[in-house]
Design a protein around this nucleic acid. Sequence first.
DNA 1: CTGCTTTATATGACTTTGTTCGAA
DNA 2: CTTCGAACTTTGTCATATAAAGCA
Length: 953
Amino acid sequence: MRNRNKSKSQTQSSGTLARKSQEGVNKLLRRSSRLSSSGKKEQDGFSLENDLKTNGKEVVHTMDVCNASTVEGCHRDAIENSQAKEQEVLHSMDAHNASPGDDCHKDTLLDDSEEMNDSDWEDGPLLKLDPVNRSPNEQMKGITIEFDEPSGSTGGRKPVRRASAEDKELAELVHKVHLLCLLARGRLIDSACDDSLIQASLLSLLPTHLLKISEVSNITANALTPLVTWFHDNFHVRNLARVERSFRTALATALETHEGTPEEIAALSVALFRSLRFTARFVSILDVASLKPEADKYEPSNQAAERVSGGIFSTSTLMVDNLKRDSIAPFPVQTSPCNKKDDRGKSSRKSKGGCSMSNVAQSRDSTSVNESTDGKSTSQVQPDTSRQCVPKNSQGLKRKGDLEFEMQLAMAISATSVETHENIHDSSDGNNSLEASIPTKRWKRIERVESASCSQGFSTALGSRKVGSPLFWAEVYCDGENLTGKWVHVDAVNAIIDGEQKVEDAAAACKTSLRYVVAFAGHGAKDVTRRYCMKWYKIAPKRVNSTWWDSVLAPLRQLESGGTGGTIKVSEHPGENSSLNHVILPEKSGQEASKEYGSKIEVESSVKDSFVATRNSLEDMELETRALTEPLPTNQQAYKNHALYALERWLTKYQILHPKGPILGFCSGHPVYPRSCVQTLKTRERWLREGLQIKGTETPVKVLEQSTKLKKARVSEDVCDEIDSKETIELYGKWQLEPLLLPRAVNGIVPKNERGQVDVWSEKCLPPGTVHIRLPRVFVVAKRLEIDYAPAMVGFEFRNGRAVPIYDGIVVCTEFKDAIFEAYAEEEERRAAEEKKRTEAQAISRWYQLLSSVITRQKLNSYYRDSSSSQPSGNIQDKNIETKTPVQSSKDSKQPTAHRKANNQDTTHTTSLVALEVGHEHVFLTKNESFDAENSIRTKQCECGFSIQVEEL
DNA sequence: CTGCTTTATATGACTTTGTTCGAA
DNA sequence: CTTCGAACTTTGTCATATAAAGCA
């Protein structure tokens, strides 16, 4: 028996073991697949970013590159034991030696394996590929993984693996954390811009004639032009491999050398404006990790590399971080020679791209190190900047990504060249369409050249990189604009003033979306995305839940509005920043105040207060207006989830237009309604849950037909008419409702529903005059007292593919509440007493059983003297159990047995007492044990001869 | 030939009101 | 005899994402 037990438990445990290890391996596989792909990316100069999105733990690893390889190693070791999957894993790990085009193949492989784990695990190794005999050399040659498509790989290409809820949650968390980090970074930069030393140094550099600008009272955007031009001519974006201690020192260095990252240059411009007593903000696109899981999985997301090796903030400023990695990465990633070469070529190309926005200006002054690697492509656009730096690469092997990149670069350059020239001299907004058309044409031309020069075809649909995107700029408050004053976009890096409409296009050209544009000032921040984003419906789904974001920004907004008011303030009332938060009448006082302010700098502090508050609220209004006056999208799909507009055809089953109008416009013939007319409909029962009921006279506004389930019912029941009425779902809208009015409880009778119960979704669902008593077994009391009650259903449980109601307590009339509580207390007391009595009785009976068996045994022993007390039989030793059981010896049999019972697991009764001298402690060594398999009785023996028999269950 | 629209398909999310049998 | 509780079992529908086809 024991043997059987043992083997059984072994099989059981091995069963669970197998399951456990399978789970473990699956997990490892998943992780290693990520690691391997990231490992590959390291070598390609790409990134570990995907890990950020897939596994929380890996976030840690991705934070420093050096760990990654170690981790990979560990995984490898760990996986070594799992025979079946190992090969695949190793193989996929080796994939980083393969060419970059293998992404999808690899994914296919991993996905397949993941899916098969459930069913095929026990069937032995999956020899899809035969990697065992493959020599490392072969792998090093960059042989692509080939497999014979054993499963017929449905659909041919990459199997789409949908993100699970877990993935989404994780992605959202990463997104949020990233946002917070970027906000923090922005505040850091903002406060560095306030540094008086830096501001003073900037002022000292400024030519005298430009200093006068601070005396202009009603500053306009145009008035800023000479200042911005000067700044642009004197400060340049550059690749810099600096190991910066803090941003402030970085900024100081940038100031000293007149060059720095776009971030630094933009920050310097903000500092300059502030030093001239302008109200200026540092504005940044927060280029966060995607909210959707694996959204940029197939992008060659080089930006992610920056997140790892460089700062998180400078995600899209490739040049800086790539260079950094190449030159100063503390733990250079292992790269095979060929890869390395490639990598370098690529990164230099990237770095060139990073500066593209400012290339035009920089080419004037040849400090720019940004060499173009491919004369052909760029020369069309910017002949001056192209110099052959890495000619080999450009002639020889070109990969899809490179071509793509070069095209984008060219595009960006062309876009910049147009914008820059036109904007400096003329800040009107009329030439948008012209500008937009030019890059496209260029692209086409370039593409033609490229495809001609490179025999291999390529797809322009390939993932594109975020290169050279404008990410940082300044906003200066110009009182001279718009009567009331206005925040003016000033991109000193690219010498663009008042080009807020161009930001979106420029960013889009670089595949950066304006999900979050945040302005930093006064240690606070404000979301100004709406100023720059024209197509809100496109970015809205890419942003976090707005309540979360608003709550995060709320305190920062306060600071910001204080800061933007405070900067411009005259120093007479320095302590006023904190008291700026009361909003006074928005528009009128604002205009007055601005006029007053414009006339003279000495203004009364109260007026200033209102002015400041108004400035902030004016901006709010401006942004709000933009939000509400978004142009109608031209494609229908945009209306699907548009926040402002709706098309009837995109409504869901449970939606309706009420009232149906006004019609705001037409989109390919379909009338466009305001989204506010869209009402969500619910069934009577659904509304009940919210404590609402349908007004007596109302008829369902929409009736849906239910299908499959009731067709079956019809077949079985053959009662068509009745079911037909059942087959519809009657929906009602909000406007048809009134607060729930349940029949009042009268005469102690609880009004119940058709099931004889009360659905307690919330307090509102309780009929008036009743209470919900949530106590276990309380219904017994009510029944005993003959009080009318209804079981309270509180929800559903999904069991066996079926919904089962959950009951909790009862609903009774209020007047019985106290009586029930009283009776319940009594009842519980009684029950507890009974329970106690029962347990005691049970204990006594068990003692009785035990003792009588002991006595019986003893009688038998004394009767048949010859039978020995110890019965050695089988010799099975259980090494696992080594018991030292101290047994108080006593002639009274009760105590030791009790003791033994307590000390031995699974013991039901014991026998065989030998009187011993007092004080001896029995020691039961494992080697003295024996086990009778037939009766499953274990006999333990002390050195003194005392033995004890234990029946194992 | 590109880009938009439609359609098909797959998946995730959400839905949600029993029966039978055996032990106490 | 009644009562209680556990086991059984895998539901349908809608929204959404994606690919592919269709179309201008």
